[in-house]
Amino acid sequence: MKPPVFEYHRPGSVAEALDVLAQTGHDGKVLAGGQSLVPLLNMRLAAPAHLVDVNWLGELDQVPCDAGGVRVGALARHARVEHDPGAAEAVPLLGQAIGDIAHTTVRNRGTVVGSLVHADPAAELPAVLVLLGGTMELASAGNRPRRVAAADFFVGPLESALRPGELATAAHFPRPPAGSGSAWVELARRHGDYAVCGVGVLVALDQGLRVSSARAALISVGPVPVPVDLTDALAGQPHDAADWAAAGRLAAAAVDPEDDIHASAAYRRHLAGVLTARAARSAAAAAASRLEASA
């Protein structure tokens, strides 16, 4: 379990990084937290000829928050975002979901943007980005940075819309509308494992604390995060007594999971329903308490 030979680059600026990436093209890979890439190298499942280490690009280690939401720079580690008060206020779902990523040691190294680019169908953050309708910011030498919507970014298992030579510089997580609340619920075999099934739910309430809209995004039940609109099942119902099971049924019907060594497809579909119902209930409760707090 030793990686094959590669050339190591440590650019000192984003511009320099983009130049190296442009030169190495298909043969180059960005090294961020290394929590996913290094195991792949060691198992010789990936063998890039060049590694471009972005860990020295302090300019990417930013998590600015504003009225629009949270912009997570490419070097911001999971742990930093998880505990960032501004991010928690603007997009509570970020911290809720990150808490279920691996363990502290992994979260201290792994980056939010790295996780998004890696596009693991069992990873939490792609679902969060999809649920919130966020965007990825991608830069490359000689071109204008491009923005790709979450819905277009996740293409397949471990496959994103990132092109060779591109660096993902940030991910933008929009602030959910006032009066909404969120929850993340997942089931993992062991504490910190990738989820057998996971779901994020965003519920918006009206002034009478009735559901006005609700959306979910599920992981580990398809090649990419599966968005599900739950509004039909919940709209107009009280925040503390809606037909959560109906929301669950919508989710279960929307997913197309597969059997694997940890769980059957049928069980995963069952979980999609159960966990969506649970998450919707919590999200509605969170929305209500936010509304009450601001009232």
Partner: peptide
């Protein structure tokens, strides 16, 4: 026994 298997037994 895993949760998936226990659930299958219940079914």
């Amino acid at each position: 026994i895993s949760p998936s298997e226990l659930w299958a037994l219940r079914e």
